[in-house]
Design a protein around this nucleic acid. Structure first.
Length: 952
RNA sequence: GCGGAUGUGGCGAAAUUGGCAGACGCGCUAGACUCAGGAUCUAGUGCCCCUUAUACGGGCGUGGAGGUUCAAAUCCUCUCAUCCGCACCA
């Protein structure tokens, strides 16, 4: 009767934990009790589909770490919440007319049910959702902090806008000028930006959502529109975001991604003279140049470029500016105007993505104007080409075709001159071509064709030329970042409204003055809207709000509210702070509690957030840090990315339309990418049942025809492929403990690995065995297995017990959960074979397993403790300690190698010295036979490890 | 193209960091048992060879080719494959 029945056990213990608040976290850690551990999961977006099996992977890992830490006396903060703003809820609303809030609440309820069903030890009293008004009040509040901050380069930190020094000439222009000056320095500012606007969807789209000029969803046309957008000045923090990475215990790959995203490079800015050469008298230019080394040029008559290779300045034979560069009109000669307008219009239709994808053939148009190379004094052509990006550096480059691939390609295409100024090393295979102006070399070497700098190495030339252009006033050392300011506004309904209003004049037109909504009026709630449908114009949905929401009086003046909303990132940027003090109505988090719990000690989530969420979050945190609202410079001390879980391995064969099979190596793809046979006939990939597959040599074949080779592969889970595994089904069929255990047993946490339902059955088998090891499953009532007895372990049992405690402890600490579970399986295999199973060993294994499979552990613990009351639940037991003395062995087996191959094994005392070990080895009959009169050239004895005899 | 990661049995994977390759699980094979249970238990299971057969024994083996070493999955060089990022950032 008392068989292991998770369907009965698990809900019962979940209800118990809930009712007794077993996993409630203290508001303040009691440090005298143990260290604090803030263990955090990336909170999910509560989609309508519910959890997929990828979620519980990371959540189980943090749950094990949290439970393990609690049992070791640590103060643990382990919360969960929901990132509940987002586009899907809004699209659902458009389709059904149901308010996003209703659907969101339903999804949150479903997610909560599923998470509780898996027995995670969250403190549910700290549950938050970014859509709660009490939550987004503080999202808006933080936005106002960002808005109220300017970045002081001198102290390298954000400071209150009131402390921004106002230059006298601004001051004298009056208060509006001062406000505008402040606005231009705030970390949150408005700017005109080109966005991807999709009229059919009625929203702007991220670059990632636009493919070939069409929307990813529905393939609707997308236009590039300049819209006034809110930007956050994350670029001011580029250097600190980069430096801060050094001290973080993060995967190196993630750090690298962030470094590349920030993309710091060093080089120089150089000003090229573009004044009217005839009018400004080029001979005077030449004279000045000879007198000073470099000419002084009138301001405004220069085209500024950024380069990482100032050493190649002598090789700059032309220049390129981006189509959007402000000087395009001025530089374009009348002859070129028509061509230029055509080119620029064409470029504006391309998205950034299109410009950078595809065959990348270089295109461009000559402006008809030349600049002057400041070191050679020669005129060089200025071109407009879209391979130069307006948004990086100065939007203009000096082109050095001999030493830059892209410039080389462009120069070849348009027949521009190529001058080598770096001598490639002898080993460079195209050295002759480079020197002859027919090749490109991007490495370093000795300078040539560079006047007085000839013969110096690239690094020295970089410094020398930078120094020269600096002293001549036509350039300076410069640092550039790929990182752009963060486009922060969205034309959507289901997001946080901005706590900003725009002042209106008497006629109802905006004056250009913005005001923050006073903090005591937060939150700015979303207005009631009946209609979410897109209207085809780029005005945000909030424009349709009723006047009593839209208009507000501030400082006695009529204002119109900002109608953009914040992106989904906003709420997820700071949620880890709110968990610490979720109910606080006076501050986003109590100072003392924040200082006690931060930083997050362990943060686990998917690698898809490697850049955006983790970078945005660090940025906000640094602003809050500068403004004194948080106590740490970084939010997340340690980060781990759980690997993706793929669908089950599938076997695929290929079938012609007539049903005949053919081998995977007889299938190729035609020009359109369709699979065809050697006759060009279409072929379908068909999933083959695993039972019909057998192994032949290195490949798989159809069981019915060994000559037909088939492919095996695991794919991402997707609805269209039909290989999505639903946790509800797994829990129903095997139980939550089995699901948890399997996800941890599959392999290392970080690895990508395929699902296997048979594997779930395997761990379920293990739990059944654990159950039967302790419970008499033939009895009618819940009683101990008769083999479980109150006797001490014998020495072998003690060694197994204590080595298991040790291994499970160490592996859990290092998050090697798969090997910890393997060790518990070995323990179970061993003790199942024992006629008598000492109670102390059974109690220990139940405690060891409880972080992994908490429900069965509670149930078995209750049985083991039935006679001794008041020992509490398994989840709160102290973690067992291992006894080193129990691990000591009387003798150990040592392999003996002859010439590196194991020939036999000998028994020696564990602490035997080298001489004794060698003596024992040489006395072994197999060793004597193997040596057989030959001499021992060398003998290596590694105590406790092995013996190797080199015989000749 | 650039960068990162990973390649170990039929499958998922271990291997104390240079010291017995394949722990543990799935699958498979054979047997036992039966209170027919997602049964359970026992034994076997990298590949190949020797042998009538067993015992014993031997060879090969961590994507491939070299190298260092008494000793290499682990270190070095080259190379191939797969996956994931980034992608004209001057």
């Amino acid at each position: 009767m008392p068989r292991y029945n998770p369907a009965e056990i698990e809900p019962r213990w979940q209800a118990f934990w809930d009712a007794s608040k077993t996993f409630s976290c203290p508001d303040m850690p009691n440090i005298s009790k143990g260290p604090k551990r803030y263990i955090l999961d990336m909170f999910p977006y509560p989609s309508g589909e519910g959890l997929h099996v990828g979620h519980p992977e990371g959540y189980t890992a943090t749950d094990i770490v949290s439970r393990f830490a609690r049992m070791n006396g640590h103060n643990v903060l382990h919360p969960m919440g929901f990132d509940s703003f987002g586009l899907p809820a809004e699209e659902h609303a458009i389709k059904t007319g149901e308010h996003p809030r209703i659907q969101t609440q339903r999804n949150i309820d479903n997610f909560t049910r599923q998470l509780k069903m898996l027995g995670f030890s969250y403190d549910w009293d700290r549950k938050i959702a970014t859509t709660d008004e009490a939550y987004f009040k503080w999202t808006q509040w933080i936005f106002l902090v960002v808005y109220d901050t300017w970045f002081d380069e001198a102290s390298d930190k954000g400071r209150p806008i009131a402390e921004l020094p106002i230059p006298p000439e601004i001051q004298s222009q009056g208060s509006d000028a001062v406000l505008r000056f402040q606005d231009s320095h705030r970390l949150a500012y408005q700017d005109d930006a080109l966005v991807n606007w999709c009229p059919a969807l009625g929203t702007v789209l991220a670059n990632e959502e636009v493919i070939d000029g069409k929307s990813e969803r529905g393939s609707h046309p997308v236009q590039r529109l300049p819209l006034r957008q809110w930007m956050l000045r994350i670029t001011s923090y580029a250097e600190r975001l980069l430096d801060g990475l050094d001290d973080l215990h993060w995967p190196t790959g993630i750090k690298k991604l962030q470094q590349d995203w920030i993309g710091r490079s060093t080089g120089a800015e150089v000003d090229f003279f573009i004044g009217d050469a005839s009018k400004s008298d080029s001979s005077a230019w030449q004279t000045a140049r000879q007198a000073n080394g470099f000419p002084k040029v009138p301001p405004g008559d220069v085209l500024r470029v950024y380069t990482t290779r100032p050493d190649t300045l002598f090789g700059a034979t032309y220049m390129v500016i981006a189509p959007e560069h402000p000087l395009v009109d001025r530089l374009t000669s009348p002859v070129q105007r028509t061509a230029m307008i055509a080119y620029r219009d064409k470029a504006s239709f391309k998205s950034d993505r299109e410009r950078t994808e595809g065959e990348r053939a270089k295109t461009g148009v000559y402006t008809g104007t030349d600049a002057i190379n400041p070191v050679t004094g020669k005129p060089i052509a200025i071109w407009v080409a879209d391979y130069v990006l307006a948004t990086y550096g100065t939007g203009a480059i000096m082109a050095v075709p001999a030493h830059d691939d892209r410039d080389f390609e462009f120069a070849v295409q348009f027949g521009l001159s190529i001058v080598a100024v770096v001598d490639p090393p002898q080993s460079a295979e195209n050295r002759d071509a480079v020197l002859a102006g027919r090749g490109c070399f991007i490495g370093v070497g000795k300078a040539i064709n560079s006047g007085e700098f000839n013969g110096q190495h690239t690094d020295a030339v970089k410094q020398a030329i930078t120094a020269r252009i600096t002293s001549a006033g036509i350039g300076r050392a410069a640092i550039n970042y790929k990182l752009r300011d963060w486009l922060f506004s969205r034309q959507r309904f289901w997001g946080e409204p901005f706590p900003i209003a725009h002042e209106l004049d008497a006629a109802g037109n905006p004056t250009g003055i913005k005001r923050a909504i006073p903090v005591d009026q937060l939150p700015v709630r979303l207005p009631d809207l009946a209609d979410f449908k897109p209207h085809g114009r780029p005005e945000p949905p909030l424009e349709k709000a009723a006047d009593d929401w839209l208009f507000v009086t501030l400082e006695g003046k009529r204002h119109k509210r900002e109608t953009n909303t914040m992106p989904q990132w906003a709420g997820s940027c700071w949620y880890y702070l709110r968990y610490i003090d979720p109910l606080n109505s006076l501050a986003l988090v109590d100072r003392e509690r924040e200082a006690a719990w931060m930083p997050v000690d362990l943060y686990v989530g998917g690698a898809e957030h490697a850049v955006l969420h983790l970078l945005y979050s660090r940025f906000w945190h640094k602003v809050l840090f500068d403004r004194g609202h948080v106590s740490t410079a970084e939010p997340f001390g340690r980060l781990i990315n759980q690997g993706m879980i793929l669908g089950e391995v599938e076997f695929t064969g290929y079938q012609r339309s007539d049903g005949t099979w053919l081998s995977s190596n007889q299938v190729r793809r035609d020009t359109e990418g369709n699979r065809v046979d050697d006759q060009g006939m279409a072929v379908n990939g068909v999933r083959v049942d695993e039972a019909d597959v057998e192994k032949h040599g290195d490949s798989f074949a159809l069981r019915t025809d060994a000559t037909i080779r088939i492919d095996s592969r695991a794919h991402k889970m997707s609805k269209s492929r039909g290989n999505v595994v639903n946790p509800d089904v797994v829990v129903n069929d095997y139980g939550a403990d089995s699901l948890r255990l399997f996800e941890m047993f599959m392999g290392p946490l970080e690895a990508t690995k395929p699902w296997s339902m048979a594997g779930v059955g395997g761990v379920r088998n293990f739990l059944d065995r654990v159950w039967r090891m302790i419970v008499d499953d033939r009895a009618d009532t819940m009683i101990l297995n008769p083999a479980v007895v109150d006797v001490p372990c014998d020495s072998e049992q003690a060694r197994v017990l204590h080595s298991t405690i040790r291994k499970v402890t160490e592996d859990t600490e290092s998050m090697s959960f798969n090997t910890a579970i393997a060790r518990m399986m070995e323990f179970t295999n061993f003790f199942t074979r024992c006629e008598s199973r000492p109670r102390e060993a059974m109690e220990a294994i139940v405690i060891l397993i409880s972080p992994y499979a908490p429900h069965i552990a509670e149930e078995l613990w209750q049985l083991l403790c039935a006679e001794s009351n008041n020992r509490g639940c398994a989840s709160l037991q102290p973690w067992p300690q291992w006894d080193e003395s129990a691990l000591v062995q009387t003798s150990i087996e040592l392999p003996v190698q002859i010439n590196g191959k194991v020939r036999t094994k000998i028994e020696v005392a564990p602490d035997a010295d080298e001489a004794t070990v060698l003596q024992t080895a040489l006395a072994d009959s197999r060793v004597i036979a193997a040596i057989d009169g030959k001499s021992i050239a060398k003998s290596i004895v590694v105590p406790g490890r092995l013996v190797n005899l080199v015989v000749k």
